[in-house]
């Protein structure tokens, strides 16, 4: 009887190798809604030409904003208008996309207007391709229907906020 007894185990070792390819690094783009040439983070900027002292019913003030897409991607922007102060509830504000404000009117009755463009209804967003610029005319009016209680109000303001969102679908 022959008995074979293994005296050593089977070798399972294998050769390996590794190769690493390194790029130059990644950077992110930015979304930048530029209003009146002001780029970067949201910091409210004043347009005193939209202010008016001593408004009486029927008078209006207007200003043209320049809205540009200065970022790296197309975007949609949506305007939100708020009025504040004691006179705020009485003010009506219209936005005219592509419109331009008339010249500064300093004689009674001061009736500045927006010329051209299309009325931008509340909640509607506007597509802005990368690198594009549009005019946005802001028209604030104290309507003839203004209540008697709004005589002599010493505070009031109009704020236009534009919220931009990157376009993620073509």
């Amino acid at each position: 009887m022959l008995l074979l007894v293994p005296t050593a185990g089977t070798t399972l070792a294998a050769w390996t190798d590794r190769s690493t390819v390194a790029g130059d690094g990644f950077t992110s783009g930015r979304l930048d809604l530029v209003v009146d040439g002001r780029t970067g983070l949201d910091t409210t900027h004043a347009r005193p030409d939209l202010a008016l002292e001593g408004m009486v019913p029927g008078e209006s003030t207007a200003a043209t904003l320049s809205v540009a897409n200065g970022g790296d991607a197309d975007l949609d922007w949506t305007p939100t208008v708020t009025t504040g102060g004691g006179l705020g509830p009485a003010l009506t504000v219209e936005l005219w996309l592509g419109g331009r404000a008339s010249a500064d009117d300093t004689t009674y009755p001061r009736t500045e207007t927006c010329t051209g463009g299309t009325r931008l209804l509340p909640g509607r967003s506007v597509r802005a391709d990368r690198g594009s610029t549009r005019d946005l005319c802001v028209l604030a009016t104290l309507p003839t229907s203004t209540d008697d209680a709004y005589q002599g109000r010493t505070s009031g303001s109009v704020t236009v906020r534009l919220d931009a969102t990157q376009v993620t679908t073509p």
Binding site: G29, R30, L31, D32, L33, V34, V35, D36, R38, D42, T43, T44, H45, A46, R47, P48, L50, A51, L52, E53, G54, M55, V56, T61, A63, L65, V67, G71, A73, L75, G85, L87, A90, L91, V138, A140, L142, T146, Y150, Q151, G152, R153, T154, S155, G156, S157, V158, T159, V160, R161, L162, D163, A164, T165, Q166, V167, T168
Partner: peptide
């Protein structure tokens, strides 16, 4: 998930006042 960049810009009129009779 449809993550997207956002931005915001605001413009303020300054003080608007009313006259009286």
């Amino acid at each position: 998930t449809r993550a997207a960049f956002t931005d915001r810009a605001s413009v303020d009129s300054g003080t608007v006042t009313s006259g009286s009779m």
